[in-house]
Design a protein around this nucleic acid. Structure first.
Lengths: 237, 237
DNA sequence: ACCTGAACACCGTTCAAGT
DNA sequence: ACCTGAACACCGTTCAAGT
């Protein structure tokens, strides 16, 4: 009956049986699990309560609303980045190594939680200049510090922060979207499960379909990141 | 009582008084208007019905579900790109001019409908290789044709399509998010209206706050696009 | 042929009541 | 102190009934 050390910081499956003490953290973890398995659309307060073996209304003792719950889940997932041993808060081998590790850490996070990442990308941030996917002040501070301490002028560091955010957001969102299409149509109970129809009107698409369907996302990520780092290098002076 | 030529292809405000014939197109336009004004979260079938001066259940005669309605709205907005006189379906002054115009056309669309663009970005596409924000087969075909006819090998054209999509998605999503933050907190009835708290733990952020708050999105777009076009140029052979 | 009323199975959220 | 039952005001969607 006893569960093994249940304070693990990673996301783990919560069975209805595991009647832990029900604090905010437990609820957020269960919520993240739920979205990983069934998608955001399926997540209701009642169902999440049921998953925790508790009446839905009990959640409101620890979480003020469903909106706040979603924000909390995004924050929880972002916090996993601190636990990633490959990612440093301070640069150790120059700013390129720092950015390289940060980018790959974020990519691992996105691929580990493909159904949560769209939330990371689209939930309104707490300030307009806090840009997804680097949604936490602590990481933004770390980012800017790493660059200014490496010789970037303030303007250049901020420009780098913006270019970095937009590159990661675009690439990772497309990558998890492609992944989501493979995972499950549970999210979409309607028309978009439609097969790709008649392509005869689209000769280019028809002819290049094999190339289009190929998955080159890992290589693309590497190449685009390398290009970005080079470009950012020109900002130093 | 008579309205001026009401077949206009642009989005226009539908008052409850304007009892048009209620077909799918009318419903989609009213839906787009509604989202522009109140955000997706506020859009319910009942409220959209009311906005059209009709009982909510009547909508189901023309639209199979709310999900399908949202997809239809995205499609409607994307179709506006065909009406943009600055954007060409066929290249007229080389592939760079073609891509430049296409990118700017998409940006105009995103900025005209900042609350709809996140839907363009995140709705599951009809095939995994159909990437937002270029969500239509017709545009993808146009894109690939423009590049192959300009000397891009098939692999290079596809690589360009991917890089172009990811650049636009990242940049435009961040741009409309920043815009949305300025527009209205109607979307967010909860905690995220919080003011930016104590920044004393984040010295870099504190020091660079003015730079961070500056809006440089138009310049950034131009510069990043130019850089992208240069990079794509190296793919020709 | 097109719209509607009533109904069903859900929601998020509140609050007095229970233990 | 923490959880619950019942209730409120909403949802999306179905379908027999109205015109």
């Amino acid at each position: 009956m006893r569960e093994s050390g249940s304070k693990a910081t990673q996301i783990h499956t919560h069975q209805p049986s595991g009647k832990t003490k029900l604090d905010r953290r437990t609820i957020l973890e269960a919520g993240a699990d739920f979205i990983d398995q069934h998608g955001v659309r399926e997540l209701s307060m009642r169902r999440l309560g049921a998953a925790l073996g508790v009446e839905a209304m009990s959640l409101y003792r620890h979480v003020p609303s469903r909106e706040n719950l979603l924000d909390g889940i995004v924050e929880l997932i972002m916090d996993q980045l601190y636990g990633d041993p490959e990612v440093y808060l301070e640069p150790r081998n120059g700013w390129q190594d720092y950015l390289f590790r940060l980018a790959h850490g974020l990519r691992r996070m996105a691929l580990a939680h493909p159904r949560i990442f769209p939330l990371v990308a689209t939930r309104p941030p707490e300030a307009p200049w806090v840009r997804p996917p680097l949604r936490s002040l602590r990481w933004i501070d770390s980012f800017l510090g790493a660059l200014t301490s490496s010789g970037f002028r303030p303007e250049a560091a901020v420009a780098a922060y913006r270019a970095f955010s937009s590159f990661l957001l675009g690439h990772l969102l497309l990558e998890v979207a492609a992944l989501g299409a493979e995972i499950g149509p549970v999210e979409t109970d309607d028309g978009q499960a439609q097969e790709t129809g008649d392509l005869s009107e689209y000769p280019q698409v028809l002819q290049l379909q094999d190339l289009l369907s190929e998955d080159r996302s890992a290589d693309e990520f590497e190449e685009s990141l390398e290009n970005l780092l080079e470009r950012l290098g020109t900002l130093i002076r």
